[in-house]
Design a binder for these strands. Sequence first.
DNA 1: GTGGCTGCAAAATGTTTGCACGGAT
DNA 2: ATCCGTGCAAACATTTTGCAGCCAC
Lengths: 136, 136
Amino acid sequence: METRNTIQKQTILMAVKELANHPTAEQVYEKVVEKLPNISRATVYRNLSSMADRGLLHRIGVPGGADHYDHTLETHYHVLCTECGALEDIWLQESQADLLKLANEKSSFSIQNYQLVFHGMCPCCKAKADALNQLH
Amino acid sequence: METRNTIQKQTILMAVKELANHPTAEQVYEKVVEKLPNISRATVYRNLSSMADRGLLHRIGVPGGADHYDHTLETHYHVLCTECGALEDIWLQESQADLLKLANEKSSFSIQNYQLVFHGMCPCCKAKADALNQLH
DNA sequence: GTGGCTGCAAAATGTTTGCACGGAT
DNA sequence: ATCCGTGCAAACATTTTGCAGCCAC
């Protein structure tokens, strides 16, 4: 159950922090491979996954796409652009406890947490879509 | 842009309604193949997807797992068992409009909707886990 | 020295796609 | 007669796994 301190782990965690904005495992790999040319994708996947399990990172699961990883641990939410896949933070002080309490009252499940992902269009894709609509 | 009325489409939609509780594409395929032994998985995937796009069904995206399809169109939410993958409804009158309005105020994205999935343990898995903890 | 960690390749999973044919309109 | 929808197989994207050797402890 002990955890060894390898160069790969250090470099992967550093990469997520440097990339800052919700990189996918592939993006982390591309960053890390600059420093460690022989690293394997399997190592990146394995470590991101175990760091997420241990709470060093948050995993943002995107159905039908690659998972993203977030080095920001404070409770917040995300918007996903339905056009280009851009992922951004949303900070709501919407009380987490309330949704959890409410859900637990309404369900026989023992609910521990939840994932709230908003879907919409980023400003860039919205502008393009609006311009297209103008043409007819 | 027209939509032809094939036996496959009818049977697929009927299967989702009969299975009732959030079947995956694979589960729909297994049900449909009883009636149409020659149907292809591709047809099931294609039709479930297009029906979801046209609003005849709801798609519940589960990161790292198969998407589920829901024949219930009224706004509600879902709990996913972290142990066995069971998926169940949660009905909250938590006003949809409020979360959308709030999120749009806080973000530069043009947000149209959101997906809210709770994570926890179903009563069965909870009982097993509690029993294990009793043993120490 | 031991056993967790790594790199590699292969497998697994869920879904999409190209293409030729057949059936709904 | 059109041409959309289907079945098939292959491709695809993402992630996991088995295994032999390596290296942090």
